[in-house]
Design a protein around this nucleic acid. Structure first.
Lengths: 215, 215
DNA sequence: GTATATTCGTGTTTAGAGGACACGAACCTG
DNA sequence: CAGGTTCGTGTCCTCTAAACACGAATATAC
């Protein structure tokens, strides 16, 4: 009874909406169950895992070049009852202003996700742990922000993900010491004193990936 | 032209021999090429990835329960010319006194590995980077030692892997502060003053794995 | 235009962690 | 019992990380 083998790429796509960290979920085909699942697709012949992950991401992200990182491969024989399915899990960070809502899918706050099929809850948990951890020693945080952002916005992003308040001056000192962002010279005006705008340095993403200690 | 899909588990098994970190390699079937490769086997039907990795490890390790950890999954379509092969890479740490030499295989110092087939050199590089990194914030080091060991032996292990000398007193302070090892009460006698023997606490391995930040 | 509200941007002090560093203790050997 | 070898230990200092408050710049309301 050799069950058919399927190799999939499943994606934990995260974004910031309404001051919350949200994850993209797909309604299961089996509507009766009212279950949701991570978006994914079978490995495309002729394409790498990374490329397949990008294909999965495309419908939910208007801009190319979102941050994408392989997480872990799940292969327990009982994780999917019907078939033998091996899932290579990826995490994507989508800037808030680039997030789309593909039909049949929706973003859900990670604090209150609906019931997830298979072991997808475990995969999501793992992605969040990795993101929180990585936030502390790299600078992936601004991958969730638009191209230009203020330091206060960046700090809010960190606070949302880590779930704890951060000290303003210490935060700024550390971020600037890492020298992964630079001022654009422009300012964002609004309520109160205008804030300087920053962007991450073009090579900052490369640097984060080069530190491929836990890709 | 759908190439056949093969899902493999390939293993970077590391041990300490002759005061060097060594990796287990298999001679390629194609002898003419004089190439070597990481040991591995296709995913076993009905077994998980972890279980398959353990099967790969068994012939080279006399004791069960070696440290085993998933690293990364390699799936570039051109990494193996003939077929479409996806490899889930694992790392194993084998205590020096448990290392066996299966026929057709051999241990090689990681400083001077022979030419490796496919992208196996890249996989090995990645495993070493991960091990060195992990050494600094967890206590996987003693996974390479026999059940009882002295602090000097443990320090040597660290020095070999990190490739740099460490301060004796600072090393002891840090290791003991982490409280992952405990004295057995016994001593190892030999040249000079006898050394106290330590073992890692039974739950220390579990702790390292629980921190599954980058499994 | 003047007062008020709001957010931005900045420096110092202090506590804790990590690194450098040397010598007496215990045992074996000849 | 003298000499050789490895084991085991404590202090000082430096540097990193945390706590903490107020003037500056603009928008708005009066």
């Amino acid at each position: 009874m050799a069950k058919e083998l399927e190799l999939r790429v499943d994606l934990v796509a995260l974004t910031l909406r309404e001051r919350q960290l949200q994850v993209l979920l797909e309604a299961c085909a089996d509507r009766a169950a009212r279950m949701w699942r991570l978006p994914g697709r079978p490995l495309q012949p002729g394409r790498s895992l990374d490329e397949t992950a990008e294909l999965v991401l495309q419908p939910s992200c208007s801009a190319p070049g979102a941050y994408l990182e392989q997480l872990y491969t799940y292969g327990d024989p009982r994780r999917v009852p019907e078939k033998r399915v091996i899932s290579v899990a990826y995490m994507a960070l989508v800037p808030g202003d680039a997030a789309l809502v593909p039909p049949g899918s929706d973003w859900h706050p990670v604090q209150q996700v609906p019931p997830l099929a298979y072991d997808h809850a475990e995969i999501l948990e793992y992605a969040l742990r990795r993101l929180r951890y990585k936030l502390e020693y790299t600078a992936v945080g601004f991958q969730l922000l638009p191209e230009e952002f203020t330091l206060s916005e960046l700090q809010q992003t960190y606070e949302i993900i880590l779930g704890e308040p951060l000290d303003k001056r210490n935060f700024r000192r550390r971020i600037l010491a890492a020298s992964v962002i630079e001022p654009t010279g422009r300012k964002r005006t609004g309520e109160g004193r205008p804030a300087r705008l920053y962007r991450y340095k073009p090579d900052a993403v490369a640097e984060v990936k080069a530190r491929r200690l836990f890709p």
